[in-house]
Write a protein that binds this DNA or RNA. Structure first.
Lengths: 198, 198, 198, 198
DNA sequence: TATGAATGAGCCTTCATTCAT
DNA sequence: GATGAATGAAGGCTCATTCAT
């Protein structure tokens, strides 16, 4: 009887096993040899599950994003105000807890900017839409509940990308230390304008 | 005696000469051989002016940014309102006119995210601060002139990075076509809240 | 499953295959490409078995030295006097039979003098000790058997290195033709003093 | 009036100026650029005085050897016995005072073994003969004066090269620390046999 | 299915040498 | 005589990918 291998699971396992390597060295200095070694499989086997190196990053980000997404869902549902939800949302970009995922995310954005290919873009779009729809929903509910002024809707997209914008900027300018302060300051000031005063 | 060469100018010339190559293929597929060829110099000559490939990109972005910065200065000085200034500012991210610089800028951000080194970070910080100080000034003047509400100041950083955030997002999600609409919509809605109604 | 290869043997094969190339051109003008070609393997394969060019020479000398060592063992065991043993020992430095090994040995000494690294030094030490212990043994037995005067022991190291010293000198001074005569003359005169007259 | 440059002296100056560089890095990692820099001349100028890199080493060894030779002459003339002369002779190979020259000499031997060319060999021969004639003379006088037994003459060449042989061996085997002891021990034991007991 | 030995195109980089000034 | 900018041949080495087992 042939051994039945769960291809989907093995794919995930391989991607996940090189997480640390990926975080430490970045995709550019990762070699298939190294990946095969830490994954505990042969070099040829990698090619049974992935077409190229970037697909592995792809899979890895996929896994980690889903994980993060689930946690975030729970956290958000515990928040009482839209502002707090947005704050929890933006926490991703500075808490220690997410530093690993952030490192990988950074690399991922970098790859996407440099060598965009269809599969990767499709995934990014999915990823973006997933979070964005969510984000939009929160704002819409806020307006419907009379917590936010109607004009808030027109700012959703802008607000959504601001956290990422700041993250990118802070990485580039090596000013990651101020990120938390800057983000919270921005959110506080913004909601000062958006929240309906009771 | 030996030939005296304007090393600074030649450095610029080499960097500039590979602009098209860089736009078409990205830094990763650029080879020193190609660069030397389009620059019309020998391979060894490249190393007389640059330590490595990334330094060339570095120089090129430097040149183009300065060029763009100057043009922008003029354009901004012609605007009558803060909102229009911000719109002109954000035009960089979608007009055809800047598509080349944008491509290079994208690559540059990508490199900075992936392999940050001190020199590059220093340049990025300088670049960021240059534009940001400018941006902040515009807002402060707006408030001082009674055109914007005082709370606008607390949003400066957020607004500043939003355009970049959307740009990155649009690249990833292949939704660059909507960028102009999204950006303008965001700015219109935001200034609805920030502008002092007369 | 994958092909199982005798890595140790293949390493030897590759090293051995470039013997002639090495003798004709010396290590400095040997290129990896040439080595790969005469070894009948790809360039990359070389790096599966060796870390760098010098390691190949290292392996080659290792092989040839062992071969020579074995032959010498037999030859020495056939000698009747210590003097003859020493003569057979020193023959290495001038007989036609060993000219190839000598060329490689010369190159090897040259490398060791110029770029000593731990591995190479360790091997040299081993090599030296191997022959030297042997040499010392011969002298000790000679004294024990009453063939040599006891003071011979104090000269062992000096005598041992003399052949090599003459070899180096003869190479430098292009006087290799006189080496045989010089060596034998030296040995004859020395043993005149060291041998116990019956 | 044209500036009269002492070509011979400038040649020496250039060679001498790169002494430290040469000692620290060895000939292989010396570049013409570096040499020109430390010599305080242009790269092209080097080629006015030397045909290639090795010629510089050649000149340098020449200078240093002559210097050493003169010092040795004086030292030797102060010795009372042949044995002491030989000891002083061999001191070159282990005293701190000569460590620099030794480093260069080692490199020089290495070059000579690897890439012997006529000029270099001619110089080596001259160098060897210079010292050797001297050495032979000492022994001959020792015999003539009734200090040494006549058979000593037949050992001159062997004894002469022994110090160098030990030096080479000690370099290879990393046993340079024992060199002084080994050499002196050898000389003491040898002269026990060669000196005429009064 | 799994492997890992073999590959070789092509990269970056070095540096001795030239030659116009 | 002196210079140093320019060169380009040539080298070592990497590593994604293949494929026989």
């Amino acid at each position: 009887m042939a051994i039945i291998v769960d291809k989907v699971q093995k794919r995930k396992d391989i991607a996940f096993s090189c997480k640390d390597l990926f975080i430490q060295n970045g995709i550019n200095s990762l070699t298939i040899s190294q990946i095969a070694k830490v994954a505990g499989v042969g070099k040829g086997t990698i090619y049974e599950y992935f077409h190229n190196k970037e697909e592995i990053v792809f899979e890895l980000v996929n896994i980690l994003m889903k994980e993060h997404s689930q946690k975030l869902h729970i956290t958000l549902s515990e928040q009482s105000s839209v502002k707090n939800m947005v704050k929890k949302f933006s926490e991703f970009f500075y808490t220690d807890e997410n530093s690993e995922l952030r490192t990988i995310y950074r690399e991922f954005v970098s790859i996407a900017l440099m060598t965009p290919n269809k599969k990767m873009l499709a995934f990014q779009t999915e990823c973006f839409n997933n979070y964005y729809t969510w984000f939009e929903e929160i704002f819409k509910r806020g307006v419907a509940d009379g917590k936010l002024i109607p004009q808030a809707i027109g700012l959703v997209k802008g607000v959504f990308v601001t956290a990422e914008g700041m993250f990118i900027a802070s990485t580039s300018t090596n000013a990651i230390d101020n990120l938390e302060k800057d983000l919270n300051n921005y959110i506080d000031n913004l909601f000062e304008l958006l929240e309906v005063k009771s």
